[in-house]
Computed example of a mutant assay.
Amino acid sequence: MLPFTVHPVGDCALLAGFPQRIAPEIGAAVAALNSRVLAAKLPGVTETVPAFASLLVVYDPLVTDYDTLAAALQGLRDADGADTAAGEGRLVTIPVCYGGDFGPDLPFVAKHAGLTEAEVIALHTGREYRIYMLGFLPGFPYLGGLDERLFTPRLNTPRTAIPAGAVGIGGEQTGIYPIASPGGWQLIGRTPRKLFDPESGALPYTAGDRIKFEPITAAEFAALAAKEGTA
């Protein structure tokens, strides 16, 4: 596993920091360390929060302390194991209807890239994306791996309302709005899947997993939305 540094965060958390850049190997290392921490069931650990290049580990200071936990994390790093499964994560397929009312910014993204709308869709659905972290909204996945031809600046003026399931591009990343909210990303499509359940907090993915977008028609969107209860 890649080396990392450990720093205290207040009196009940520590941060394991990897080299500070967005890269597949860094994301895989964060996912692997998170997997090891969860599997080890370290006394006092109450929560882990993976990010682009770090892992926050929250603990109960009445059960453990910073020095004990920092040493345990370094021990997990040095333990044998390739972490292949944790590094790759699960592959989650997300159906998306692109363009039209589902993706009003698809024409702008295509024009900005010098491509047709069909070419943008083909590029967007033609690869897998690692979930580097969840944030901004409950279950909003920040995805790495966007084809650089699709890099598109955010809107100058964010929208005040974006529907749940909207798929967008913001700068060098793509992501999905799991619930209705304001936002400034360029919207290219929408998924009918229910991504976040506020009652259970359940999500179909987590940080470290991979997402593959699958294009669907408007009729398929309607059928799936009715089944998911998102119509």
Rank of each mutant, 00 (worst) to 15 (best):
G135L: 06
H124I: 02
F102H: 13
G89N: 02
E172L: 03
P3E: 15
L91A: 12
E172M: 03
E220W: 07
K227I: 03
E220L: 02
P61I: 06
G44F: 09
L69P: 02
L73N: 03
T230I: 05
I211S: 04
V120E: 14
T191C: 09
A166M: 09
V9G: 03
H112D: 13
A164M: 04
R36A: 13
H124C: 02
P19R: 06
T174D: 12
P107T: 01
G168V: 00
L42I: 13
G135F: 03
V63H: 04
G135Q: 07
I176V: 15
D78G: 04
N34S: 14
A218R: 15
G114N: 09
A29I: 02
F136L: 13
L195P: 12
A29T: 08
I121T: 15
V37W: 11
Q20K: 10
T152R: 06
R154D: 04
E128G: 01
R90Y: 07
K111L: 05
P19V: 05
I211K: 01
T46P: 01
F221K: 01
P43Q: 10
Y66S: 00
G135D: 12
N156W: 02
Y132H: 12
P141N: 05
G208S: 07
A70S: 14
D60F: 10
A223T: 11
V63Y: 05
T191M: 14
F196S: 06
A16H: 03
E25Y: 04
G44W: 05
L33F: 00
L91N: 07
Y205F: 15
E228C: 08
E117F: 03
Y129A: 10
L203D: 07
P163K: 11
V109K: 03
K227C: 00
D197N: 15
V6L: 11
Y98I: 00
P8G: 02
V37E: 12
I22M: 14
I22G: 10
G81P: 06
A166S: 15
Q74N: 09
P50N: 11
T116F: 09
V120N: 11
N156T: 14
G139N: 09
S54C: 10
P24H: 03
N34C: 12
G87F: 08
R149K: 15
R190G: 09
P24W: 10
T191K: 04
L187F: 02
I188T: 04
R77H: 14
Q186K: 12
I94V: 15
S181C: 08
I121R: 08
F52M: 01
L69E: 08
